[in-house]
Design a protein around this nucleic acid. Structure first.
Lengths: 233, 233
DNA sequence: ACCTGAACACCGTTCAAGT
DNA sequence: ACCTGAACACCGTTCAAGT
């Protein structure tokens, strides 16, 4: 029935339009309100049409993550590391406040994937670069990332973990996985840090990081800071 | 068909048995594998039978949260605040490692409810007590909780927020909400902290806390700690 | 009064039938 | 070759029919 046509736009569908509609829907109603059928409806399109532009819902979520992570301001130039990190983390926080679903989705997808999405990797890579330029050793940068913890991007722990967080369920195989060499070229700071931590030139991201040690290191730094506050009011 | 009976146990159903089966299922397969139908199946029971013991799935999730949060060790006695907080946070971490779904579920439920679940409230209340006994002012305890951030219980931010995190969706009304007086009696440290922060005797939990300020306070304490590390290797 | 099967209104995704 | 409706295997939850 031609008269019943309810399409919101005659513009042809694209991955960008699908992701944009998905982000808008999640901003409005939270991630629970997000469904393939509902996104299609908001675009005036039949549900199956979405599958031409995203392989499945998980890939859609990954695309949404990248879209919002790219909203975070790039690191400021020509100032000290502390000001730069501070400004960037506050920019990340503003993004997370604009998109209240993002922290949770990023965390759950980071856990399910073997590697974070490209925009998250870029964010981390440039953040590591800021610390390095500020004079931090690779080891100290590693500690610093753990200390920043959830303030870095909303999720709490363990970006690169050896063991999947759910013992039974394996991580999803990455559909377009990069070679270690390609990874190292694209994310040089991440690669340098991973190699320094693992002392293993083969794997760029494969952890080797002692999570328990890092957790306690961060916890103690925090407690020391609180103790200092307590003593000098 | 009597021969086809596949019940795992003849013991009568109870809220405890339902929650136990749910936790076991989530531990095995993650929160995505958790469904009312699947829990019922694992108990050898028809799905509808669960609804005698939990009102709905959200209440089930709340019950699961309380069950695992109660696994966290109580605060150690007869030692300084720092050792006590450290030990307890590490105990919380061990719980979160045993139940990889917990951090995410706690975070999402904390955002959806007006008040955290009872066990979470008790955990916070006793943790505030430890800081108070250690000589922290109420204001300093408040800062401290924000500084601890996700290390406290896995979730990243804002236990008591004025505005629901999803602008459109209202928070669920608490089915068995307590009166402010009952809350204050049950969670005295939380109540004292809330009143000190809001300067409003009427509401025990209603925030009034400047989240942006607290975030920056915690961030700066962290950055100061890192700067100190950088200067004195 | 209690219990429960069928039903309802949803999901994500497959697949074959239509153009 | 492309697009898409119907279908499949799930959800959480309601409700009326059965005991």
């Amino acid at each position: 029935m031609q008269a019943g046509y309810a399409g919101r736009s005659r513009a042809p569908l694209s991955t960008e339009r699908v992701l944009g509609a998905a982000v808008a829907l999640a901003d409005e109603g939270g991630v629970d309100a997000l469904s393939m059928r509902r996104i299609a409806q908001s675009l005036g399109v039949v549900p199956m049409a979405l599958y031409k532009h995203v392989a499945n819902k998980n890939e859609l979520l990954d695309g949404m993550i990248d879209a919002v992570v790219r909203e975070i301001d790039p690191p400021a130039r020509d100032t000290d590391w502390k000001t730069t990190v501070r400004g960037r983390v506050l920019s990340a926080r503003r993004m997370l406040l604009r998109h209240p679903w993002a922290a949770q989705v990023i965390e759950s997808r980071v856990k399910a994937r073997t590697t974070p999405t490209p925009a998250v990797m870029e964010y981390l890579d440039s953040m590591i670069g800021v610390f390095r330029d500020g004079g931090f050793s690779l080891d100290l940068v590693h500690h610093a990332l753990h200390v920043m913890g959830s303030r870095l991007l909303g999720f709490s722990q363990e970006l690169f973990e050896d063991t999947p967080s759910r013992p039974g369920a394996d991580r999803e195989p990455d559909p377009d996985a990069m070679s270690p060499e390609a990874m190292a070229a694209r994310y040089p700071h991440v690669a340098a840090l991973a190699m320094a931590v693992t002392h293993d030139t083969d794997s760029v991201v494969g952890s080797g990081c002692d999570d328990q040690f890092e957790f306690e290191f961060a916890l103690d730094l925090t407690l020391d800071g609180l103790e200092r506050l307590l003593r000098t009011p």
